[in-house]
Amino acid sequence: MSLNKFQIAQRISRELRDGDYVNLGIGIPTLVANYIPKNINVVLQSENGLLGMGPFPKLSEVDPDLINAGKQTITTLEGSVLFDSAESFSMIRGGHVNMTILGAMEVSENGDIANWKIPGKMVKGMGGAMDLVSSSDNIIVAMMHTNKKGDSKLLKKCQLPITGKKCIKKIFTNLAVLEVTEKGFLLTEKAEGVSVEEIIQKTEGKIEISKALKDI
């Protein structure tokens, strides 16, 4: 069975290490916050100027002066800190944020990512995505393996305008976990009950199968 978005988020949460500072993008990445293991301390960064992002507020706690980068109302936690946008991106570009988890429209076999623009459609902007992908050593993607038409999103070369070059290290989809290596995608884990053949068939880019392949 392929995973749903909650199960993808749950699998990604196992990548988190005690003490990590993590930036979560919009979409599936946001869901990862719900699955942070209780025995580790992970600090979430919101690029509009907050470290230590807490859960959504109760109705009585809603504060219009406290939002996340998706413009949703949020809360602070004990130990949270607020700062301006230049400081926020200094943290990001300076490599102080340990992990960035982003959604994507396409990822190529050499680690390019496209997630900001579709030609012919209204361009809304890249927000902080280009800064995030150009900076951290540990950028992972959470996305569905194929698009709504059923076409592969893991390509030889991105068809859409890219957000960053050679920056993605690991991809978590509804079917599999793949690493980006010198030789293309490396399939390391697959969803239980999904065949390797199906994953190969739905991956347009070059793909190798790890000798240590296991179920997610």
């Binding site: 859960p55 959504f56 507020p57 109705l59 809603v62 219009p64 939002i67 413009k71 949703q72 109302t73």
Partner: peptide, 8 residues
């Protein structure tokens, strides 16, 4: 004004 009022 709040753009995305999200509550738990």
């Amino acid at each position: 004004r709040i753009e995305q009022k999200t509550i738990r």
